[in-house]
């Protein structure tokens, strides 16, 4: 109950600057395995489901994975690097999602070396997507702070920093925040900050109550940025990736609800955080599920 999101703008008052209609969002973290790709896939789905035209790009050259999470791995013909190197057009490489028409996936290259990703090349692709009238471009960053991660964040307007409530993840995220504030186009051109949001994943309210895990407010206090979502730890995430269905599409899952809330907040909604308190156990669950 204590954590309320401070997102002041209601959806209606959003488009004050109408020149650039496309918003570029990087999903980043520094540390690997915290849920960047899961988050990219679900947010992209959630935005597209609300009628937005969305492209989600896998920047993890050599370690393509977004296609698996989205369930389109067998439909990858051309990839990001193919487009950059002129082997194909962007249209040929974009994979249209089978479930949601307005959702498009650009897969990472699996074989070529990381130097294939160039700053100019990335810019060209982004510019073309902007010209095509995409509302949102989500850049799924690789772990680390190397080239791929740098380029994923470089042109971003906003950043979603995915964090596990755990020391190494929080520290790495702070490092990423430092890079967002200095090594992005916005920072270099003095064109305002990249807007940073915190998204906590693998949150276990029970362990927080027991004092075994840092709380949302702890992490928020350390990093000093807005919370855009808290995703509870759940088996549903693995099931979703097993089946190639972004977890946000699982109607029975709290994870899906939490991601959908994050989508609402991205669009300017002011929602209270859910799933951050331990559910009160009924007698039945207490007896049968411990």
């Amino acid at each position: 109950m204590s954590a309320i999101l401070h997102e002041a703008t209601p959806p209606a008052a959003a488009p004050a600057v109408a020149q650039k209609l496309t918003e570029i969002i990087v999903v980043t973290s520094g540390k690997g395995g915290v849920g960047k790709t899961t988050t990219s896939g679900s947010l992209a789905c959630g935005l597209a489901r609300r009628g937005k035209k969305v492209a989600v790009i896998d920047f993890d050259i050599g370690l393509r994975n977004l296609d698996l999470i989205m369930g389109c791995e067998r439909r990858v013909v051309y990839d990001f690097v193919n487009v950059i190197q002129g082997d194909c057009t962007l249209k040929q490489a974009l994979i249209r999602d089978k479930r949601i028409d307005s959702l498009h996936i650009l897969a990472a290259s699996q074989t070529r070396d990381k130097d294939a990703l160039t700053s100019d090349g990335v810019k060209r692709v982004l510019d073309e997507l902007i010209a095509e009238g995409f509302d949102y471009i989500l850049c799924d960053s690789p772990a680390g702070i190397e080239r791929g991660a740098h380029l994923a964040m470089y042109y971003a307007d906003r950043a979603i920093v995915v964090v596990n409530p755990e020391v190494s993840s929080v520290r790495d995220s702070d490092r990423i925040l430092g890079l967002l504030a200095s090594k992005t186009q916005r920072a270099e051109q003095d064109n305002g900050r990249v807007k940073e949001h915190l998204l906590l994943t693998r949150y276990n309210p029970r362990r927080v109550t027991l004092g075994e895990m840092m709380s949302v407010n702890d992490v928020k206090e350390i990093l000093g940025i807005d919370v855009i979502g808290v995703i509870p730890e759940s088996q549903d995430v693995l099931s979703a990736s097993n089946s190639g269905t972004p977890v946000i599409l699982n109607q029975d899952s709290d994870v899906a609800r939490a991601y959908d809330d994050a989508v609402s907040r991205l669009l300017g909604g002011d929602l209270e955080l859910r799933f951050i308190n331990e559910p009160k156990k009924g007698l039945f669950t207490r007896i049968f599920r411990g």
Binding site: R175, E212, S215, I222, L223
Partner: peptide, 26 residues
């Protein structure tokens, strides 16, 4: 047996190291 509550320890350690690293940033 309950695990010892270590969250506050994590927070305190992070507070210190993050402050230090921010200081040297840039």
């Amino acid at each position: 047996r309950r695990r010892p509550p270590t969250a506050s320890l994590a927070k305190e350690r992070l507070r210190i190291i993050v402050a230090q690293e921010r200081n040297n940033r840039g």
